[in-house]
């Protein structure tokens, strides 16, 4: 299974190792790990204000989430020659420093692995139905979508490599 949505933490090293285990055609594995940051709340505070994030709760749309992630992986496989993909996204309540998401891509060469990993992450941010709620000392705030994420995903539109 290349895609998992789970409450449990993951072992990024073990997941990366598994992508090339037992095969000799993998020359590159690129990976991204996203973490909960404590330094500022992204919503509900004024410009220039910061409020420490005490915790973050991730909600998702069970069923659609897995389909959306599978569709993104399928699109990446159509664009690049990649040998293996692993996507893990956690849900539930997470604390600063906790891992949120892993994207790892195995390919023959680094170019395809880097590009596919970034593509999957950019599309995940704009197409997979997850929502973050930050807890701060002032209360809870749903995180606002960022225009920069739409721009990041938009870079891939029409681009074939």
């Amino acid at each position: 299974m290349s895609v998992s949505v789970q409450e449990a933490d993951f072992d990024a090293g073990a997941e990366i190792a598994a992508l090339s285990s037992g095969r000799e055609d993998v020359g590159a594995v690129a990976s991204f790990v996203g973490l909960v940051r404590a330094d500022k709340a992204a919503a509900g505070v004024g410009a220039g204000d910061t409020a420490p994030v005490v915790a973050m709760t991730l909600e998702h749309y069970p069923g659609m989430t897995e389909k959306a992630l599978e569709a993104i992986v399928t699109e990446a496989r159509g664009r690049w020659d990649i040998h293996g993909v692993r996507v893990i996204h956690r849900v539930g309540r997470l604390l600063p420093g906790d891992r949120i998401v892993l994207v790892a891509v195995a390919s023959a060469h680094r170019g395809e692995a880097f590009a596919a990993c970034e593509f999957i992450m950019d599309y995940l941010k704009t197409r997979a139905p997850f929502w973050k709620k930050e807890e701060t000392p002032d209360g809870g705030h749903w995180v606002d979508a960022r225009e920069s994420d739409d721009h990041a995903a938009g870079r891939w539109e029409g681009a074939q490599k």
Partner: peptide, 10 residues
């Protein structure tokens, strides 16, 4: 049918 705000995962 589902209604929701823009997504913010990752």
């Amino acid at each position: 049918v589902a209604f929701f705000p823009p997504v913010t995962g990752g």
